[in-house]
Write a protein that binds this DNA or RNA. Structure first.
Length: 461
RNA sequence: UCCCCUGUAGCUCAGUCGGUAGAGCAAGUGGCUGUUAACCACUGGGUCGCAAGUUCGAGUCUUGCCGGGGGAGCCA
């Protein structure tokens, strides 16, 4: 008999079919004549209830079933006589694949704290919350590809290992095969020319620079892959290894970039609501009350777009007493971002045209000479979910900017070549995939929206 | 990296003024029952994070170390 997914059975038109399911026992309850098994196979947030009559052979085993055991159940899909579910399976056979000693199995049929579940990251996918997280993660991944593919973007792959040390997006993890106890040296310094790649290399902190090269040939591209930051960040919204989505579009300027980001976010939010209604309902009732309403409001309204200068004025006039003073030229603090998104506008806010001193070298200089054509998309609770900009495509301006920021243009000769030959205006942004997950699910800690989080001091599992 | 909080049963926690430990849930056993956060009764379960110090006596006070959480910075 062909195995059915629980998701398929729960959505069946009518009862009556002979079925076979495989999964893990969530709970067992006993009655006089029958035992009730709650079975989950990962395909659905909901379990299917299995009725095992006490006359079925192998009763001793049935009575030993506990949370975590893996079983195969054959039986008939029937209308449930009790409230709580439409269908259930009346079992004609139960085969036990593996036991889970109730005295030792860490997961109990009760709620656990997320802190505890992080210590058993190998088992937490079996919980309601993480099942839901993983299904939404999957839907979100698909939605990202759907969005770009439907607009003719080319999915490109930028390197994980890179020798460019000038991306300026954070500390890199070193990649080396040199003997750490006795590396080759020249004049006292480690000689990376004798390392595996003949250069000092590390894990990428962004695929953007390479993405620009590809966009300036393919028109519109996007990357979606892992990114690494060796920052000693200990917060609920930073990971040392996270996934980033980075579109890059040739012949695009800042307003195009903003419009793309807005359409993109709306599309992926809508997709998660549509594809994972049961999981989203769980997040909405148990994790972050109102999260569905928030997402729907965003999908159905337009983002607020203001310049950095306007934002500073608004903050100064707000009457709020901030811990950090608001001053033109210094970056917006978390409390400032929260005021804008959570109190002032109550929705996503795009802040554009930041002072050049607080942004990266590759951003296009504004006509005023003080600001760059950058944009950050801020959302309630999370803060910055997208950071992007129009890129500086004028060779002389870019070289001058690099020099003023003490960067050696020769190190990025290939990046500058794109400006030497057939340069075009182009723009792009980066979306933190896990931050999007946090926003969509309402999960508070970024470590709980990725199966195996990497943070300072933590790379277990 | 900085600031604050925290570490007691498998989990979540209580533990007063310093006198060597409790609850709920989970688990085990029995009972009841088309149950569904099942219910009722009983039972087992502890190096109080680690190390030192103060004290007649430390879960409790002090110091150091380790772990966890929250906030900040860096950013996505």
């Amino acid at each position: 008999m062909k195995r059915s997914l629980i998701r398929e059975l729960l959505a069946a038109d009518s009862a009556g079919a002979e079925v076979l399911v495989r999964g893990w026992v969530r709970t067992r309850r006993d009655s006089r004549e029958v035992s009730f098994l709650e079975l989950n196979d990962g395909s659905s947030f909901r379990n299917i209830q299995v009725i095992v009559g006490h006359t079925l052979p192998g009763q001793a085993d049935i009575q030993r079933l506990s949370t975590g055991c893996s079983v195969e159940v054959t039986g008939t899909l029937v209308d449930s006589p009790a409230k709580g579910q439409r269908f259930e399976i009346r079992a004609s056979g139960v085969y036990v694949y593996g036991w889970a000693d109730g005295e030792k199995y860490p997961l109990q049929k009760k709620q656990h704290s997320f802190e505890f579940l992080r210590e058993i990251a190998h088992l937490r996918p079996r919980t309601n919350t993480f099942g839901a997280v993983l299904r939404v993660r999957n839907a979100l991944s698909c939605a990202i590809h759907d969005f770009f593919q439907s607009r003719g973007f080319i999915y490109v792959h930028t390197p994980i290992i890179t020798a460019s040390d000038a991306e300026g997006a954070g500390e890199m993890f070193r990649v080396s095969t040199l003997d750490p106890l006795d590396p080759p040296r020249t004049a006292g310094q480690v000689d990376y020319s004798r390392d595996f790649f003949g250069a000092k290399t590390g894990l990428t902190v962004s695929g953007q620079l390479e993405g620009e090269l590809l966009a300036c040939a393919m028109g519109a591209v996007y990357t979606f892959g892992p990114t690494f930051r060796a920052e000693n960040s200990n917060t609920t919204r930073h990971l040392a290894e996270f996934w980033m989505v980075e579109p890059e579009v040739a012949f695009a300027e800042l307003p195009d970039d903003i419009a793309l980001a807005e359409d993109f976010l709306k599309h992926i939010f809508r997709a998660c609501l549509d594809k994972c209604p049961e999981d989203m309902d769980f997040f909405n009732t148990r994790i972050q009350p109102g999260v569905i309403r928030t997402l729907e409001d965003i999908v159905n309204s337009s983002f607020e777009v203001i310049t950095y200068t306007q934002a500073v004025d608004l903050l100064k006039k707000s009457g709020e007493s901030f811990e950090f003073p608001v001053e033109w030229g210094s970056d917006l603090q978390s409390e400032h971002e929260r005021y804008l998104t959570e109190k002032k506008f109550m929705r996503p806010v795009v802040v554009t045209d930041y002072p050049k001193e607080i942004k990266a070298f590759y951003m296009r200089m504004g006509d005023d000479g003080r600001t760059v054509r950058a944009m950050d998309v801020l959302v309630p609770r999370i803060g910055e979910i997208i950071g992007g900009s129009e890129r500086e495509y004028r060779l002389d301006v870019l070289v001058e900017r690099m020099k003023s920021m003490k960067l050696d243009p020769d190190d990025l000769w290939w990046y500058l070549d794109i400006r030497r030959y057939g340069t075009v205006p182009h723009a792009g942004f980066g979306l933190g995939f896990e931050r999007a997950m946090q926003f969509i699910t309402g999960m508070q800690n970024i470590r709980d929206v990725i199966p195996f989080p990497r943070t300072p001091g933590n790379a277990g599992f």
